[in-house]
Design a protein around this nucleic acid. Sequence first.
DNA 1: CGGTTAATTGAAATATATCAACCGGTGTGG
DNA 2: CCACACCGGTTGATATATTTCAATTAACCG
Lengths: 250, 250
Amino acid sequence: MSIGTKTFNHATSGQVPDMGGLVAFLGTNGFSGEAENWDEGRVSGFPTAASVLEFERNQAIFSDGDPAGSFYKVTSGAVRLCKLFADGRRQIAGFCFPGEYFGLACQGKEYALTAEAMIGTTVVRFPHSCLADLDRSSAEFRSHLVALLCGELSLAQNHLLMLGRQTVKERIASFLLMMLDRRGRDRRDGVMLDLHMGRQDIADYLGLTIETVCRTISDLKRAGVLGVPGPREIVVKKIRLLQDTANGEA
Amino acid sequence: MSIGTKTFNHATSGQVPDMGGLVAFLGTNGFSGEAENWDEGRVSGFPTAASVLEFERNQAIFSDGDPAGSFYKVTSGAVRLCKLFADGRRQIAGFCFPGEYFGLACQGKEYALTAEAMIGTTVVRFPHSCLADLDRSSAEFRSHLVALLCGELSLAQNHLLMLGRQTVKERIASFLLMMLDRRGRDRRDGVMLDLHMGRQDIADYLGLTIETVCRTISDLKRAGVLGVPGPREIVVKKIRLLQDTANGEA
DNA sequence: CGGTTAATTGAAATATATCAACCGGTGTGG
DNA sequence: CCACACCGGTTGATATATTTCAATTAACCG
């Protein structure tokens, strides 16, 4: 299933580099002292191990319905979380980029959606049992975990608003602003966006067709709001106009 | 703001009837022994108190942007959670019925959406500090809290699928099946649904107009799938057909 | 009962999807 | 090195689902 798997156990590695990432992400420091406890593997025979996994473009990391035993952190690349209909229709529920986590929201049950690498991607996999261990020792961690879930929920609710009540132009603009916020890199002529995704992914995130996405991006390009150096790159030249578009004031 | 407010403090009430409700909902029992600790009010000066509040139809329980200090349990009635645009567009993110909780997902920050009573409604309000207290003592409780949030997230993701990729008929059918699942009462001629909401609420949940909702319900009525005894009541006569419709097989 | 509000139905307008053609880069093999 | 094929992206023309606007009917309430 997965290629290029490099597994290591904290008990033998002598350090906890990836968990440090979790700690850092969670925005706490008084917490890192707890991390050493992670390798004790309290769950019936299974040592608590983190693995580094690599996936190639379009490869599934886990699928809707798989038994859920782990959560993941993106090290490099990009991941899409999506649901599929039998007839091929697809809805993307969200994207994950380096530093972000996925697979948290289904402790011990089954994954409710499919995670796929959008490009060559490296992730770190943590068994859910890690959470139980950490949970036992750190109150700070717990509240951060809850905050993480709340953040995802809030994101999903904004997504609902987009799909239910925004026009095409508003959705595209909102999408670009969201990506800007998460992945924008400043340049002289605006803000650069490496989307790392094709038009179909954008369409499936926004509940549109690929043609509609194209047309709308072209419109924004013609209006001087965007530049499109490559199919997976966008330069936002006039953020203010984009914001107005997102708010239906254009 | 709120009418008919009856506040009481556990420290003086001598029992924890409403928290018992939480315990019951969370589906645990070894947990109830902990509930006694709830009234100690550990948070700077504020005693941990639960209040019973009543709201009339269309009254706001809290609004998008309000500082978030409490979560709620519905005792009777029905609550909608929604987001509003400046121009009046509205998206309903979810409904809450007796026994269900809302306001959990924004610990200490601001509410990200507005909660309104859809009909005369009674709720119990718990300060978020309750959670912190309980959190300290019960591992079982924590995992249930996480499960609760995960459940909401999963619900939101299904909602995304509906809004993004389902046709009108599929959405209406899916909506009715969801309601059936949560609130259906068996009858001789089918399953009775007290929607407790108007067509506009359905429309705003499904990202449609009120006219489209009407037409589609009428279609299903004509097809013999539904009966419509009153505007806020629906009898599902042919569940199988409704399921087929929801799955795009009609 | 009248008067108000919500629900329903009809006809026209429109946004978006669908179908189809074309374009442009990228990689491959002759 | 060029020709070709391939894949994703773009654009155009048409179809259609859904909205919008308008009128009618049904439920609710004093």
